[in-house]
């Protein structure tokens, strides 16, 4: 289970006296249980990617913390990373190598035994339908193949928590389905999955619970029925737009 508590992230824009502090994430708290897919929704600049980058330990929260079991991002960076599989759309792989080589390499960096790596490779290559291109250079692969490779590599160490930022961004419908089906199967096997997305259709189909993030703050949280119940909206998209469109009920 992942627990986020009062997470804040501030950035300083500019230099000297003209520098301004921008709160990208403000007092964010949520929990994501095992076997659950949690969707972090929000417009561009809402703080979704910043939140996920804090959870990946790529950047440090200004305050607050996040836990997986007894490990937290501030004090146990390396152990925390061993529990997560993280991927964003701006993370790329070295195109000179093959998916097979990169899987082995990342497996070694994650302190895995050779037999564990082989076992995990076999499973991921099969689940993501990658066997046809694992010995081709990544540079020679299509966008979808590269994304599948990145997904497989981020999960080589079989992490408890999967954190994907826009996992279907830029993918065709077939690859997109392969990735989302894969995430569902991971959740069904007891993993905790957190994704951020703009795509409400995918979110509704995929996620068990949602958090709507606007200007760094969590505006709504719960399952689809929780959010819609007692409101005048009948789908997630309407709720989302009510927070971001001019004239929306919550704007």
């Amino acid at each position: 289970m992942l627990r986020v508590e009062k997470l804040c992230k501030e950035f300083r824009n500019g230099r000297g006296r003209s520098a301004k502090t921008v709160k990208a994430v403000n007092n964010l708290s949520f929990q994501c249980r095992s076997g659950e897919i949690y969707g972090l929704l929000g417009p561009n600049g809402a703080g979704k990617t910043t939140t996920l980058r804090c959870l990946s330990t790529l950047i440090k929260p200004s305050s607050g913390n996040a836990w997986i079991d007894k490990y937290n991002v501030l004090e146990h960076g390396q152990m925390f990373r061993s529990k997560i599989g993280f991927l964003t759309s701006d993370m790329k792989l070295d195109g000179y190598f093959t998916p097979d080589y990169m899987m082995n390499w990342f497996g070694q960096l994650n302190k895995m035994q050779e037999s564990q790596i082989e076992q995990q490779k076999k499973r991921l290559f099969s689940d993501l339908q990658m066997t046809d291109f694992i010995h081709k250079k990544i540079d020679e692969l299509s966008t979808g193949m590269k994304q599948k490779t990145a997904v497989a590599i981020s999960l080589i160490h079989d992490p408890e928590v999967i954190i994907f930022d826009e996992p279907t961004n830029g993918l065709d419908i077939v690859t997109s389905k392969a990735v989302t089906d894969f995430l569902v199967s991971r959740a069904e096997s007891g993993k905790t999955v957190i994704i951020s997305t703009h795509n409400m259709t995918i979110a509704e189909k995929l996620c068990h619970r949602f958090g709507i993030l606007v200007d760094g703050e969590l505006k709504e949280e719960g399952s689809l029925s929780d959010i819609i119940q007692g409101s005048s909206w009948d789908c997630l998209e309407d709720v989302f737009f009510s927070y971001i469109l001019p004239g929306g009920d919550h704007v």
Binding site: T57, F86, D90, L109, S154, H157
Partner: peptide, 17 residues
């Protein structure tokens, strides 16, 4: 070069100091 290509972050999120 790794920063530019976006490959460095991939390395940083793994269990390596």
């Amino acid at each position: 070069g790794e920063k530019e290509r976006g490959t460095l972050a991939m390395l940083l999120v793994n269990q390596v100091s």
